[in-house]
């Protein structure tokens, strides 16, 4: 009994890491896009300088998280079929979660 709970918990741990990383990647992506939008609406040099620097940082963050996810095998930009298999698996897990 305890064993299955533990198994479940550790399994969920893996899952949580992946979901958190995925969420982070999606956020990092939106961050880059939002900053690019914001920079092109700027007229005051002071505001623009801040947003431009933060855009660069957002790009760095995106690079870091996508490299991490590729490394862990959670993101397969080169292998579309592999990525789709992973997507389907994730869909099943998410749909199957008790609510």
């Amino acid at each position: 009994m305890l064993n299955t709970i533990l198994e479940h918990l550790t399994g969920m741990d893996q899952m949580t890491d992946q979901v958190i990383a995925m969420d982070f990647l999606v956020n990092a992506k939106s961050g880059v896009r939002n900053y690019a939008m914001a920079v092109t609406e700027c007229a005051t040099p002071e505001v623009k300088a801040v947003l431009e620097k933060q855009l660069e940082e957002a790009i760095d963050t995106h690079e870091r998280i996508s490299a991490y996810m590729i490394d862990r095998g959670w993101y397969h930009p080169h292998l579309v079929n592999e990525q789709i298999r992973l997507d389907l698996q994730n869909i099943e897990t998410a749909v199957g979660l008790p609510s």
Partner: peptide
């Protein structure tokens, strides 16, 4: 056009490995 270029580049960058 310049504005669109900046936005396009940013979007492309987030899809690049």
């Amino acid at each position: 056009r310049a504005k669109e270029g900046v936005r396009n580049m940013a979007i492309a960058l987030t899809e690049t490995a």
